[in-house]
């Protein structure tokens, strides 16, 4: 039966075009999300015995889960702080009329395009206390060797993550900086404000939306970091870099406890969603009007 009205016909076309997408998002997003919640309420090797909120109660009281979550939060804070400070510093430098800007931008962005497999394996090799090239170089220079993967493992994998991502935040900040009208700076210059004041009073407040976006993105990607722990440290030494998703992966696929690992996934999802919503709301309220 053909729809009689014009708007009815358009609606039919719209749904026809949307059909593959509706089926896809139902089958590969909404169904799995429903399933992860359903599985989180069950226990046993086949995850088929009802336990209600048992897995959640167990997770909240499990020292390993708590530890892994605190570690992940610390890792995210380090990555966010580093992304903002270094990304902004590099963007401010590149925002000047310099020769070779495009080349610098390319060179700084290259690690962002590499797989976490490359980043992880390469830095594990460089930093290896015995075989790593860094300690061999330090020894040739007569300097003491480093053991950063043992002495400061979390800081080290956060630094490696930063090495990979700083070009990305730099490009975001660069776009933000180019959106600030030059007239504001000129007006301030005429009023006698020096570069320091112009940065704190004009650049930084007007960059607030970009800074917010960068921090949301960095937190979200920091909370779900996996490869760094899997490839560089295997969660160690001990459990020093047992990042949440790595922990969940091990509970699911090494200990084969789908119920417990699903509950932990849901808990981490709740944190990520809550965090995103709070940050976005804070951003809307705090937006600077000029």
């Amino acid at each position: 039966m053909r729809p009689r009205t014009l708007s009815g016909r358009y609606a039919r076309t719209a749904y026809l075009f949307l059909l593959p997408a509706i089926l896809f998002f139902a089958a590969f997003f909404y169904l799995p999300i429903g399933n992860v919640v359903a599985t989180s309420l069950r226990t046993g090797p086949m995850a088929d015995q009802w336990t209600g909120l048992g897995n959640y109660a167990q997770a909240l009281g499990d020292p390993a889960v708590r530890h892994s979550f605190l570690i992940t939060a610390g890792f995210s804070v380090l990555v966010v702080a580093g992304s903002i400070v270094l990304g902004l510093a590099l963007a401010l430098a590149l925002d000047q009329p310099l020769k070779g800007r495009v080349a610098f931008r390319v060179l700084l962005l290259v690690p962002y395009l590499t797989s976490v497999a490359i980043v992880g394996l390469l830095w594990r090799n460089i930093l290896d206390p015995e075989l790593g090239v860094l300690n061999r170089l330090l020894a040739e220079l007569g300097l003491p060797g480093q053991q950063w993967l043992n002495t400061a493992p979390l800081l080290t994998i956060a630094a490696v993550t930063l090495w990979q991502n700083v070009g990305y935040t730099m490009v975001l900040f660069l776009a933000g900086l180019q959106g600030i009208p030059e007239t504001y700076h000129e007006a301030a210059r005429i009023d006698g404000a020096d570069a320091w004041h112009r940065f704190w009073r004009i650049t930084l407040p007007l960059l607030a939306p970009t800074t917010l976006f960068v921090s949301v993105m960095a937190v979200i990607s920091g909370l779900q970091a996996f490869g760094q722990a899997y490839i560089i440290t295997n969660g160690g030494p001990g459990d020093a870099t047992d990042l949440s998703v790595f922990h969940i992966f091990n509970v699911a696929f090494r200990a084969r406890d789908f119920g417990y690992s699903s509950a932990q996934s849901v808990l981490l999802l709740i944190v990520i969603v809550a965090f995103t919503l709070v940050q976005l709301r804070a951003g809307r309220r705090g937006e600077v009007q000029y």
Binding site: F29, P32, N35, V36, T39, V245, A252, S265
Partner: peptide
Amino acid sequence: ATLMVPFFVRMIPLYVL
């Protein structure tokens, strides 16, 4: 809303599927 759902949330159910 699916933008807020990281891949690890779908990982276990997709593996089972």
